[in-house]
Design a protein around this nucleic acid. Sequence first.
RNA 1: GCUGGCGUAGCUCAGCGGUAGAGCAGCGGUUUCGUAAACCGCAGGUCGUCGGUUCAAAUCCGACCGCCAGCUCCA
Length: 646
Amino acid sequence: MKKITITFPDGSKQEFDSGSTGGQIAETISRGLAKKALSVSVNGEVWDLARPITEDATVKILTWENPEGKSTYWHSSAHLMAEAVETLFPGAKFGIGPAIENGFYYDIDMGEHSLTNEDLSAIESKMVEFANRDVPYKREEVPWEHAVEYFTKKGDQYKLELLDEFKGQKISMYHHGNFTDLCYGPHLSSTGKIRFIKLMSVAGAYWRGNEKNKMLQRIYGITFPSKQELDEYLFRIEEAKRRDHRRIGAEMELFLLTPKVGSGLALWMPKGTVIREELEKFLRDEQRKRGYQPVVTPHIANLELYKTSGHYPYYKDSQFAPITMESGEQFLLKPMNCPHHHQIYAARPRSYRDLPIRLSEFGTVYRYEQSGELNGLIRVRGLTQDDAHIYCAHDQLKEEIKQTVELTQFVFHTFGMEVSTRLSFRDNKNTEKYGGDMAFWEQAEREIKEVADEMKLDYFVGIGEASFYGPKIDFMVKDAIGRTWQLGTVQVDYVMPERFQLEYTGSDGLKHRPVIIHRAPFGSFERFIGILIEHYAGEFPLWLTPVQTVVLPITDAQAEYGIKVVQDLKNAGIRTELDDRNEKIGYKIRDWEMKKVPYMLIVGEKEKASGTVSVRQHKKGDLGGIALETFISQIHEEVANKSITV
RNA sequence: GCUGGCGUAGCUCAGCGGUAGAGCAGCGGUUUCGUAAACCGCAGGUCGUCGGUUCAAAUCCGACCGCCAGCUCCA
């Protein structure tokens, strides 16, 4: 019998009979591992445990602890779900059914039938029943014609369409129970490993992600080997719901979205405005330190300006229609601040001595986002960017990029958010999406990568994520419950200087083109505050929170003292309210606890007599009595430090 | 924009062919109270809008509007 050498992740090697399977190899390592094994990585490719290995290979047994193992588990779950659907709805036609980050889905053409929640429960029960039969998943490799014949007979046009791409190749099919699917694999050894099943939702999805294609019904589900993990997952979903900025925003009266004003047009209420202004102040101060010059520009501009920039034709569909005057002049509600800033740059001849010029503006822009895209503050139609444009000479570019990256990182760290970095480059296969000379693009991408390397950023590259005028560095932040959001951006632009014929005179006396950096650490105040609300679950750090302290007199006898305390706090620049309602102290405490106010100052006879306040901290409880002046200086310190309480 | 689901009091929800309900919030009164809900009372809704079916529509049907989830898009 031929022998093969298997290399393990720790570098150790062992001989096996040729044709040994991943499952058998796992057995020789340990019983426990064999039991936990879901699939096996063979030379970096994920295989079924039952697939024979016939050549020397590097092998890693994959379990629930490995992303690839989870993926195998969920992919098999998708097949199990497909079997349940086919049993309950004969004639259903199947698109694709992959594992995703959290669980799996299957896109299904159900003909006229729309799936209901009852259907989902029925499918879920069927899945449990089928899983309990504990039948094996079997891989079979068949000639292409054979696969075509099978799906033709079954009438599954989607699978046939997929098969078109593999003409003449060997096709792998997977069988389990009464279900057969076209599939690369890999799969679990048997359905019995799938233990706890939850179908989450059903939604429409275009076949192959193309909106010209038919919309299929997509069922999302997730499965786990243990009840505990399922419960934890469901709990996380509840937690995300609890943090929903739309709910908290309404409860805390931060902002208002009403159809009476218009979809996606947020009104900032007094308390939300406090947060917004604190954020503005924070950034304004940081930018001033870094040599930015604030500018202000109007909300509309001549349409020609946006024809010059290229924004108008390119984003026509997502802009509010131009305003046409009787004279024939046309104006556009501004979708971008850049062309305005470019005009300020171009207002007079510039010397190399002036550069870099950093123009900043909290500029409000309007974009007609598709109705289905609107989402609370996260996606709106009127938004204010923390925008800036840096005009610099080419030899200043890398240093300027570095500074903007540093500013962005500083900003996110202030909020206690973990940042990861994506270099967003163009997709070479789809060049008509991008403006300008491709030589500039190559240069810009190279420079961005150099900066990222020099700064030792831990980055990944996103192909096809560039904007139409240049590559970007995008910052993805992780919030308090582990979700990632794309926020800040730094973009290098060689295109707009060309389009606007921007120039400066160099030390050589000749005209040169500047390079522009577009950057926005928050992105927009709307989106950023929406994310902050969810990140903090409405429990903002003291420097941001709309109401920092509330004074609670115990009875009317301390009302006057309460008023004095409130006034002292206000004089000290602390945002304070007085709760002199005729209610018991327990009631008031409960009320303000739910309003997430960081500090309650309870004043009774004792405090009145001694000129102190009894401090109760949100979620922490009674901290005891303290002199008012001491409390004020503690608050000042906490605000100045921008302490994070999460 | 597309597919599906949902629109009942400020909020959370019940009612699902036969005169619109509860809790919380609000307002009035009593109570003046020490660290997460005192008590009594009052008020509040053309049941998203418009049309249709019916003796009768919050309830059934249709269109529109809005919201939610997903898809597509995101300068």
